[in-house]
Write a protein that binds this DNA or RNA. Structure first.
Lengths: 236, 236
DNA sequence: TGAATTTTCTGACGTCGCGTCAATAATTAG
DNA sequence: CTAATTATTGACGCGACGTCAGAAAATTCA
């Protein structure tokens, strides 16, 4: 079942090596610093061989994004399993999102690059679907928690307001927040530090706005996060 | 005072022409479709002359962004002057933001491109400051409304929670929302249409979460927006 | 084992876009 | 009207892209 033909095995290994070489290049020197020639030189294969694996550098970038996107899915799934009320599980998701951004800041760079239409149009539909699917998986996990909350009567959504809509808001707030935090200088102009805490405060307020109990005023956030760290992610 | 030397005048005019030519190119063919050669050909000047105005294509993109960013500042300033309670003025801002995205969708493309570090590093600090400053101006306008709300006792923020922090949340939510709406396919996967209404609902809920009165449950949103359209933007 | 065949790898090649700069044309000053 | 200054041009060198004919390696078969 997991036995691949040694041929394919070797192929995959080399693919990993190419990605491993490409990652620091793009992290350090950005989109324009990454070139097929440079990868070929560093990985010590010819350009043609690299092209056998990836048809352009954008394809490499999305492959890097996929590696990391899978990790996020895992983090979200783990967070969703936190033993506690729906609202606390939501806090766990927030923590997972934050942890992900902290641990894999590169991902945001890849995502930004891949958002550009003229970049996106160069990558295979297959890989695009994989990233999209990762995002959908994450959102599905969160939607599940929203449904659980409704079932448990921790939350009542306005008529016609689907769980997906709530998740959209959370997603917009967090991804927008992380994007601003990671890129915009306007933040410091305005005297804000600690964007992560801020985002977490805002998601809490938004959920309060929906009346998702227990409200953020009724539980000890610090203690909850403490528990999440220990029980879900095994951090101290 | 507004008399520029005819030299400079002519210079400016040509700059406008270059930008006017570049805009549709990048809108249609994206970042990679835009090249100095192509601009030169279409504007019927030589490449060298184009380079006299803009030192690279990224510089042209940011110039395009600046044109549009100024419009947003104007929209926000106008919205802030809506005669009504602080909460309604906030709704007006939301409407302005939405109107801006509707009327100038290109701006998001430019912003996305300019967010990429390796692109950003190619543009002059001067122009970067101009865009940053536009963003800061917008946020300052909004912050002013928050302060007014506090002064009028429509809103009480938690201790240590500055108006700027609230604005950050609004900004994250709307810009994140618009970004997802404009790019991600995940939306339709999940069955969401009308992202604009959704964003507006979420901002309302977030403000409700802060207890900014009148709460969204206590006023007629449709009617308010109607008034805003007429009184602030003169739309029917 | 060794020749034949298939597969994989290679780097030179044509192309394109960038940014420069010496030469040329236009403008202004004297 | 000429000299000096300023503006414009496009050819040039460079680097990256993506391709492909041929070299090298691996595999098959007698």
């Amino acid at each position: 079942m997991n036995t691949l033909s040694p041929k394919k095995q070797q192929m995959l290994e080399r693919e990993e090596r190419i990605l491993a070489v490409a990652r620091p290049i793009i992290v350090q020197d950005g989109y324009h610093g990454l070139s097929m020639e440079r990868i070929a030189a560093e990985v010590e294969y010819s350009k043609g061989t690299i092209y056998n694996h990836f048809s352009c550098k954008e394809e490499i970038i999305i492959a890097l994004a996929i590696q990391t996107a899978n990790i996020r899915v895992e983090l979200f799934k783990r967070a969703a399993q936190f033993k506690g009320s729906s609202r606390f599980r939501m806090v766990a998701i927030g923590y997972a999102a934050e942890k992900f951004v902290r641990d894999y800041p590169d991902f945001f760079l890849f995502e930004q690059i891949l958002q550009i239409p003229s970049v996106r149009s160069k990558v295979s539909e297959k890989r695009q679907n994989v990233v999209d699917n990762c995002e959908v998986q994450c959102m599905t996990v969160v939607t599940g928690i929203v449904r659980d909350a409704i079932a448990a009567e921790d939350l009542e959504l306005p008529p016609g307001f689907s769980p997906e809509k709530l998740v959209f808001g959370m997603w917009a707030l967090t991804s927008g927040g992380f994007t601003i935090a990671s890129s915009s200088e306007s933040l410091r102009h305005i005297g804000l530090e600690n964007p992560f805490d801020l985002i977490s405060d805002h998601t809490a307020t938004l959920l309060d706005g929906f009346g998702w109990s227990p409200l953020s005023t009724d539980y000890d956030k610090q203690a909850t996060i403490q528990r999440i760290c220990e029980e879900v992610f095994g951090d101290e």
